[in-house]
Structures are given as structure tokens and as C-alpha cells.
């Protein structure tokens, strides 16, 4: 049996990715996570005098805290198995990536384990966030200098 024949058998038997189901679950749970976040924005605006432009920070921090707790208790992982991108894409997923790696590194000590491993998975998000911000701002600056666009 050659590789191509095998590929056929394997594809026939391997259950297909449930695209529609996965997308639906990601939409509902991801939407729900954002709605909970939105409730916090109201909470911080009404009770802590935040404005609509400044409320993003405490909201994100609160969501990160909740995700950290659920990660530590081993619950986030179970929700994520159902939600997929619905829990990976919100900032809670970033928290889960950082916190799970941090907890995992504990047996190697706080410097070599927790410290060095914390950004094992979330590090690429920071790299590409910062690098793309740099280039986008640079391009904008060039375009403004050339008079193509305005600030």
C-alpha cells in the first residue's frame, strides 16, 4: 500500500472536523464572553467613574482575573474544549495561556520555571502586537510626511 492509497483510507475513516458546530459554539461562547465583559464596562462606568475611553483597562483586567482563576481550577480547559476560539480569542484566552504556563513551570522554581515559561505561548502575541504596531505607525508617519493622508 503506498502513501496515496493510505491517505484515502485515513481520510475516509477520520471523522471530519465539525466546522459548522465549531463555528456556532465559538460564536455563542465568544459572544457571551464579550457580553460579560460589556457588563463590566457598565459596572465600572457607573460605580467607579470610568469613561468610555478609559473603561477598557479595568474591564480587561477583570476578565483576565476571572480566566486566571478558572485556569488554576482546571475549569477553563474544559470550557475551551467546547468553545475553541470562543475562549481562545478573547483576552481571557491570553490570560489562560500565560497562567497555565506559569503554573506548569512551578516545579522548576519561580525564576527558571514560572518566569521563563510564562510567555511560552503568549509571547508570540506580544511580539506580533508590538512589531505590527511599530510598522503600522511607521507607514502612517511616512504617508503623512508625504502628504498622502492626515493624522
Amino acid at each position: 500500500m503506498d502513501q496515496q492509497q493510505y491517505q484515502q483510507i485515513e481520510d475516509q475513516i477520520t471523522p471530519p472536523t465539525p466546522y459548522v458546530k465549531n463555528v456556532l459554539k465559538a460564536f455563542l461562547i465568544g459572544g457571551l464572553v464579550c457580553t460579560i465583559g460589556h457588563a463590566f464596562t457598565y459596572f465600572y462606568i457607573i460605580f467607579f467613574n470610568f469613561t468610555e475611553t478609559t473603561v477598557g483597562n479595568p474591564t480587561a483586567a477583570t476578565m483576565v482575573f476571572i480566566a486566571a482563576l478558572l485556569t488554576g481550577l482546571g475549569i477553563y480547559r474544559k470550557i475551551a474544549q467546547v468553545a475553541g476560539a470562543g475562549t481562545a480569542v478573547p483576552v481571557t484566552g491570553f490570560s489562560n495561556a500565560v497562567v497555565s504556563a506559569a503554573i506548569e513551570g512551578k516545579t522548576e522554581g519561580f525564576v527558571l520555571g514560572v518566569g521563563s515559561n510564562m510567555f511560552k505561548m503568549a509571547g508570540s502575541v506580544i511580539l506580533f502586537g508590538v512589531a505590527s504596531a511599530f510598522f503600522v505607525a511607521l507607514i502612517k508617519l511616512i504617508l503623512v510626511t508625504m502628504g498622502v493622508v492626515e493624522w
Binding site: T71, R77, T87, G93, N96, V99, S100, A101, I103, E104
Partner: peptide
Amino acid sequence: YPINYGGQKPAT
């Protein structure tokens, strides 16, 4: 991944 990381695993 770390044990508590929420990655969605396929049926396989």
C-alpha cells in the same frame, strides 16, 4: 501544551 491550557482537541 501545559495541562491547564485551553486548546481545543479534535476527535482524533
